[in-house]
Simulated assay, not measured.
Amino acid sequence: MTTIYLVAHPEVVIDPTIPVPDWQLSERGWSRIKSFCARPELSTVSDVFTSSERKATDCAEALKAERRLEFKIEARLGENDRSSTGYVEPPRFWEIVARFFDSPHESVLGWERAIDAQTRIRESVADCVASREGEGDICIFSHGGVGTLLLCDLMGEPISRKRGQPISGGGCYFAFEAEKRTLIHGWQDIASS
């Protein structure tokens, strides 16, 4: 049985002057992801994939430093495309996110439709599994929004924000069995032991 760990990056340095895909992990985010990378269950990981966004590649770099595992960048693991609006300050951002999940077949303010992002993340993860080179488990660094979409798909549920990460700021992961796509556990804090 191959386990896939889908990890949503933790806290980032929010800078409205920098494009969102180029944001990096904050000091707290680095501390939390390093704690995750040292977890004993990750000793069975042989293949690592990451979104091309900086906050996700930072996570892959942390795992590489801890486990000496190279990683592959898979752009389709990226967060839902929000480039039409760029950075939106809360609370307005969370209002748009709610509409994104509540109306999955509609583009909200030009954002990628949730249904399309769900299809993209599902197919990307399947391609990661098919292209792996090792025989161990797989770690995928991605984002909370598309992670939630994948979790809904794995659970056979309609798209819903209720399956979102339980921690403000992100930094959660879930695990599922690769071949049968059976959920092992839902979102958990990356820094919990």
Rank of each mutant, 00 (worst) to 15 (best):
T57L: 10
T57K: 09
T57H: 07
D58H: 14
C59L: 00
C59Q: 07
C59T: 08
A60N: 08
E61R: 14
E61I: 10
L63Y: 12
L63D: 06
L63Q: 12
L63F: 11
L63C: 09
A65K: 11
E66T: 15
R67Y: 12
R67Q: 13
L69T: 09
L69G: 07
E70V: 00
E70Y: 05
E70C: 00
F71M: 06
K72F: 04
I73W: 07
E74D: 08
A75Y: 03
A75V: 06
A75F: 03
R76Q: 15
L77I: 11
L77P: 05
L77D: 08
L77W: 07
G78D: 11
E79F: 03
E79D: 11
E79W: 02
N80S: 14
D81T: 12
D81Y: 06
S83R: 14
S84H: 05
T85N: 05
Y87H: 14
V88D: 00
V88C: 06
V88S: 04
V88P: 04
E89G: 11
E89L: 13
P90W: 09
P90T: 06
P91Y: 13
P91L: 11
P91F: 13
F93H: 14
F93R: 14
F93P: 02
E95S: 13
E95W: 05
E95T: 15
E95G: 14
V97G: 06
V97P: 03
A98V: 04
A98E: 15
R99L: 10
R99P: 02
F101I: 02
F101D: 06
S103C: 09
S103P: 00
H105K: 08
S107L: 02
L109A: 10
L109W: 03
L109I: 05
G110W: 03
G110E: 00
W111Y: 05
W111G: 01
E112Q: 05
R113V: 01
I115E: 13
A117I: 01
A117R: 00
A117E: 01
